[in-house]
Design a protein around this nucleic acid. Structure first.
Lengths: 143, 143
DNA sequence: CTAAGTGCAAAGATTTTGCCTCCTA
DNA sequence: TAGGAGGCAAAATCTTTGCACTTAG
């Protein structure tokens, strides 16, 4: 994926080093579908490089976040990470019953955002946040 | 507050015991303004009862949550708790810069909810969730 | 009385840090 | 080769759990 190369070039441009570990961690996040927590990134990265250290994953994730390459998403009591992709912004809704997470378009929140800005002068980061609820599949108590 | 008495009666009604610790923890949450994390509840409760144990706080918070007396709010990577109050539902917006949290009315999300239900058959729990952003006070980079 | 609840301490789980070695630029 | 980065292990947090003692009902 060419985008990743650009991203990694951005790392170098910061005077930082482009190490195999960083490339592997980036791929791990990119290959995983959607957001994943630190363990998931770690496990996936280990498949490509068995010596991967969990501390390296934490440090790299923090770095990537600082560089804006990945986005941190609060999922309950754990943080999840996903590739920052301006062309595929979305939001998450997670089912409280089956824990499945779904995505929906940002346009659903356009009006909401407008009101927060206008009425509170609060600039929301609506690109990555999560709401919970119950998905259609888990709704036994209704037809 | 009479509401709390009702709440605690509800505890007894479940065949559970109304202990001083539980009353103190409930007061701690009620007295604190808005949501607080486990430590904050613990510290506050300790002021009323110095022997309070952190394990008791965790157990009690889980119990209260199970009973629907308190609501769990995901704030970044920690869970926060607040009194469940059907008459004062609200949402949170937390400033990424100063960490200050503000509240806004649920009506802001009415249209959004309607679309999730209609188009995805997803029933969102919009009563307690958090969005992040930058508050007006922390916006130096703009007029 | 007696089962539920608490306190205490230990174990788990998750995240961060120090330090020495290795490797990218 | 020099400073950034990784590996390893220890420490720091945060949360849960086992068990004996206490206590509400």
């Amino acid at each position: 994926m060419n985008r990743h190369i650009d991203i990694l070039e951005a790392v170098k441009a910061q005077g930082l080093r482009l190490t195999p570990q960083r490339m592997i961690i980036l791929s791990a996040i990119a290959d995983g579908e959607g957001h994943m927590n630190v363990d998931e990134v770690y496990e996936r990265a280990k498949q490509a490089y068995p010596y991967m250290d969990i501390a390296t994953v934490y440090r790299t994730l923090h770095l990537f976040k600082r560089l804006g390459l990945v986005t941190e998403v609060g999922m309950g009591d754990r943080l999840h990470y996903e590739l920052t992709d301006p062309n595929a912004r979305h939001h998450h809704m997670a089912c409280q019953v089956c824990s499945e997470a779904f995505a929906f378009s940002p346009s659903y929140l356009d009006e909401f955002r407008r009101r927060l800005v206008n009425e509170f002068d609060f600039e929301p980061d609506l690109d990555h946040f999560t709401i919970t609820g119950v998905c259609s599949g888990c709704r036994e108590t209704r037809p």
